[in-house]
Simulated scan of single mutants.
Amino acid sequence: MDHDLADFAIELAMAARQETLREQPGGHNAQDKSDGGQYDPVTDADRAAETVIRDMISRKFPHHGISGEEFAETLGQGSIRWSIDPIDGTRSYICGLPTWTTLIAMLDGIDPVLGLIDAPCLDEIYVGGEDGAVLIRGNDRRAISTSGCKRLAEARFSTTDPYLFGSANSRLQRVLDAIRVARFGHDAYAYARLAAGSIDLVIESGLKPHDYYALIPVVRAADGHFGDWHGGEDFASGNVIAAASRELYEAAVELLAK
């Protein structure tokens, strides 16, 4: 990975922490931005963190594009674009739970080439690029990789919320019947732990680009596999699978297709 760009992404994450950690956990006033649909919370900290990240990128790389969850896209003058999700897991954030994250990705065209998952409450930063994936805790920095798990029967599985699968709930149940253990509610942090080897399989439905762009480089750099529900890389529907190995990914695809 380009270490200068990775270091800059870490600087962005640390600056965002100054906004997201400003209030006490659970003490956040959230507004519903769903316009009457499924509850979709946003806080002042979401907007403040994204503003800080955007300002830093614009100063350092004025020709780069920027897209984020909370504000309109800033068009760039070349192929490089940044993607920002200032708080992934806002429901956890407003409940005072510690596994919400900040997601930052750099894309070249449509390809995410650098990804960062920051878990501020846990002081954990996961970075992935072409030279591998690392976990940073304070002054400790170490390379990480997936568990390499190949069999559903041995897999530790996670998804954010089984209720989000809607009409595909029967497919999810087949997965739950096949795996060893399941944990819910961790949003992007589950992908970070997959990259670090303690989760083996994550399947989600209905993600937006800012939800998954940062995840792809981190999972793939840690020798994991990231694809869609059909064995390809069409993420337009937001239906994604991250797996500790290609074999486990293919087993999940086969199970979902039944």
Rank of each mutant, 00 (worst) to 15 (best):
D88I: 04
D118C: 12
D46A: 01
T102D: 10
E70V: 02
T90Q: 11
C95H: 15
R91P: 05
F71H: 04
A49E: 08
I110W: 03
D44V: 15
D44Q: 14
H64N: 13
G65K: 04
S67W: 00
P98R: 02
P120H: 07
R81K: 13
R59M: 11
L97E: 14
T51I: 01
G37L: 06
A45R: 10
Y93M: 05
M56P: 13
L103R: 11
E70S: 02
D108T: 03
A119G: 07
G65C: 07
T43Q: 06
G89W: 04
I80T: 12
G68S: 12
D40C: 02
I94T: 06
L107T: 01
D88E: 02
R91H: 09
D55Y: 01
R47T: 09
A45Q: 15
C121G: 06
I117L: 11
T99S: 14
P112L: 00
D88T: 05
P41I: 07
F71C: 04
F71M: 07
I117R: 02
C95N: 14
A45D: 12
G96N: 04
Q38L: 14
E69M: 00
L75P: 10
D44E: 15
G115I: 08
Y93N: 01
D85A: 01
Y93V: 06
Q31F: 13
P62R: 09
P120C: 09
I84P: 13
I117K: 00
A119C: 10
R59I: 08
R81A: 04
G37F: 03
C121W: 02
